[in-house]
């Protein structure tokens, strides 16, 4: 390896570490100034602008990116929802055992998947908070919690409305239903925790630890129907040997799942934008209080 190549790699690493520590920005994010930062003077600023994860970690960059993506996400989500609802009511047949109540599954199952998927996302974000201190990690976790609670609540309510005519009861304390209820309580607890602490940095770390501890509930929800004798039926879509649902019901289910997932993505982006604005407002209010404005 030539000395020139070695120096180039070393400079790149130095720059990457400085950016990761928040001591420097990529050149195309830097504010033009007559007094360039030390890194720029040392000639280690990349010459070609590029979009990277570091760019998206910048809240301002995220605001611009999400603003462009939101209309497209909503358009596709609502389009899929229209198609999914048409299929759910007009093309999907009634089930030979459940009759028409099977149509409740087209909203119950996507909600249940999202209730768990959202928690999984929060767990990844919590790792981002604790390990990498990613600027948007705790914004993501905090913004996702109310959405996860909404989809978990919807799962429980629609399941109950299906259970009454099919099982003859609104509720039963079986492992699947109880673990899903625990998930809702965990979401509510995390929301309360965020609201209870003024120091958002401290709240982020405490909530991240609690979220990671709570991930133990995800495999319990998923495998509860296999581990225990439950009234809730075993998995019929996400199985190693393939789905047991007829294709005429499986396609509307996947279309509705796609619509719900995109709606969740759009709502999460909107909620994250609000959270970024909330932190800016708080910072500015503290500045105003300090200046006596």
């Amino acid at each position: 390896m030539t000395k020139k190549a070695f120096n180039k790699i070393a400079d790149g690493l130095t720059e990457a570490i400085a950016i990761a520590r928040g001591e420097a920005k990529p050149a195309h994010l830097s504010v033009p100034s007559d007094n360039p930062p030390p890194l720029k003077r040392r000639g280690i600023v990349p010459t070609t602008p590029s979009m990277s994860l570091v760019d998206l970690a910048n809240p301002t960059r995220f605001l611009g990116f999400s603003q462009r993506l939101l209309p497209f996400t909503w358009a596709v989500a609502l389009g899929l929802l229209a198609v999914g609802l048409y299929m759910a009511f007009f093309t999907a047949p009634a089930d030979y055992q459940q009759g028409d109540t099977v149509r409740i599954m087209f909203i119950h199952v996507p909600s249940a998947w999202l209730s768990m998927g959202c928690y999984g996302l929060m767990a990844i974000a919590s790792l981002g908070t604790l390990v990498w201190r990613h600027p948007l990690a705790d914004v993501t976790a905090k913004s996702a919690a109310p959405l996860g609670a909404a989809f978990t609540f919807l799962t429980l309510v629609t399941g109950s409305l299906w259970g009454k005519p099919m099982w003859g009861t609104w509720w039963v304390w079986d492992a699947r239903l109880t673990s899903e209820l625990v998930l809702l309580l965990m979401y509510l607890g995390l929301i309360a925790l965020w609201q209870a602490m003024d120091d958002q940095g401290r709240a982020a770390r405490v909530a991240a630890v609690l979220t990671l501890v709570g991930t133990i509930n995800l495999p319990i929800i998923k495998f509860s129907v296999d581990w225990w004798n439950t009234l809730h039926q075993p998995a019929s879509v996400l199985r190693l040997d393939g789905p047991t649902i007829d294709i005429s019901m499986l396609i509307p289910l996947f279309v509705m799942a796609g619509a719900f997932t995109l709606m969740f993505a759009a709502l999460l982006m909107m909620s994250m934008r609000n959270e970024i604005l909330r932190r800016r407002v708080r910072t500015m209010e503290l500045t105003a209080a300090g200046l006596g404005a």
Partner: peptide, 8 residues
């Protein structure tokens, strides 16, 4: 069971 379906 239309009532349950539409309620959901």
């Amino acid at each position: 069971h239309a009532g349950f379906i539409f309620a959901a």
